Structures are given as structure tokens and as C-alpha cells.
Amino acid sequence: TTQFTVHSPEQAEQWKEYAKQKGLEVHVQKKNGTWHVTIH
């Protein structure tokens, strides 16, 4: 599991796309103005 924080919805979307291409599961949670992205 990879977990990191991004600071814009655009970055979060890019990671979603990346994960989809790799066939991975991605979870994005918005918290205090940042987005926590978890890739399984």
C-alpha cells in the first residue's frame, strides 16, 4: 500500500487515472484542504 498527500484535486485525479491504468485500487480522502491518496 502506498499512501501520500497531494494538495490539489487535479493531482488526486492524475493518481486515480494512473491507478486505473495499472489495475490498482485507489482511495482518495479529502481532509483539511489536502487529499490523502492511498493506492492498494
Rank of each mutant, 00 (worst) to 15 (best):
T1Q: 09
T1W: 15
T1K: 11
T1M: 12
T1N: 07
T2R: 14
T2L: 15
T2Q: 12
T2I: 15
T2Y: 15
T2D: 06
Q3P: 03
Q3H: 14
Q3W: 13
Q3R: 13
Q3D: 06
Q3A: 09
F4R: 03
F4G: 02
F4A: 03
F4N: 02
F4Y: 07
F4E: 02
F4C: 10
F4L: 07
T5C: 15
T5A: 08
T5Q: 10
T5H: 09
T5M: 10
T5W: 12
T5G: 03
T5E: 11
V6I: 05
V6Q: 02
V6D: 01
V6T: 06
V6G: 02
V6W: 03
V6F: 06
H7K: 09
H7V: 08
H7G: 11
H7P: 08
H7I: 08
H7M: 10
H7L: 10
H7S: 13
S8V: 04
S8G: 06
S8F: 06
S8A: 04
S8L: 05
P9L: 15
P9R: 15
P9G: 10
P9Y: 15
P9C: 14
E10P: 02
E10A: 08
E10N: 05
E10W: 10
E10L: 08
E10M: 07
E10S: 06
E10F: 08
E10Y: 09
Q11L: 13
Q11A: 14
Q11N: 04
Q11G: 05
Q11H: 08
Q11W: 05
A12L: 13
A12Y: 05
A12F: 05
A12P: 01
A12I: 08
A12Q: 02
A12W: 07
A12H: 02
E13A: 10
E13N: 10
E13S: 06
E13Q: 11
E13T: 06
E13H: 07
E13F: 08
E13V: 06
E13Y: 08
Q14V: 10
Q14I: 11
Q14M: 14
Q14Y: 15
Q14D: 05
Q14L: 13
W15I: 08
W15H: 02
W15D: 00
W15E: 01
W15N: 00
K16I: 15
K16F: 09
K16P: 00
K16S: 06
K16M: 13
K16L: 12
E17Y: 09
E17R: 11
E17F: 09
E17A: 11
E17G: 04
E17L: 12
E17N: 09
E17Q: 12
E17W: 10
Y18L: 05
Y18T: 03
Y18P: 00
Y18H: 03
Y18K: 03
Y18F: 09
Y18R: 04
Y18S: 02
A19W: 06
A19E: 01
A19D: 00
A19Q: 01
A19T: 02
K20L: 11
K20Y: 09
Q21G: 09
Q21V: 09
Q21D: 08
Q21M: 12
Q21R: 13
K22S: 07
K22W: 13
K22D: 03
K22M: 14
K22G: 04
K22E: 06
G23I: 02
G23P: 03
G23W: 03
G23K: 05
L24Y: 11
L24Q: 03
L24E: 02
L24A: 04
E25M: 12
E25L: 12
E25Q: 12
V26Q: 01
V26S: 04
V26E: 00
V26M: 06
V26T: 03
V26Y: 10
V26D: 00
V26N: 01
H27C: 12
H27P: 00
H27Y: 11
H27A: 06
H27L: 09
H27G: 03
H27S: 11
H27W: 09
H27E: 11
V28I: 14
V28Y: 03
V28D: 00
V28E: 01
V28F: 07
Q29S: 11
Q29F: 12
Q29P: 00
Q29N: 08
Q29K: 10
Q29D: 08
Q29T: 13
K30T: 07
K30W: 14
K30M: 13
K30F: 15
K30Q: 13
K30A: 10
K31N: 09
K31G: 09
K31Q: 11
K31R: 12
K31S: 09
K31F: 12
K31E: 10
K31P: 01
N32L: 06
N32C: 11
N32V: 03
N32K: 06
N32T: 03
G33Q: 05
G33D: 09
T34N: 08
T34M: 14
T34Y: 13
T34A: 14
T34D: 07
T34C: 13
W35A: 00
W35N: 01
W35I: 04
W35R: 00
W35F: 08
W35V: 02
W35E: 00
H36M: 13
H36G: 03
H36E: 13
H36P: 00
V37H: 01
V37A: 01
V37P: 00
V37D: 00
V37I: 14
V37F: 05
T38K: 05
T38R: 05
T38A: 04
T38N: 03
T38W: 09
T38C: 10
T38G: 01
T38I: 12
I39R: 00
I39Q: 00
I39H: 00
I39W: 03
I39K: 00
I39P: 00
I39M: 06
H40D: 05
H40N: 08
H40V: 14
H40S: 13
H40Q: 10
H40M: 13
H40G: 10
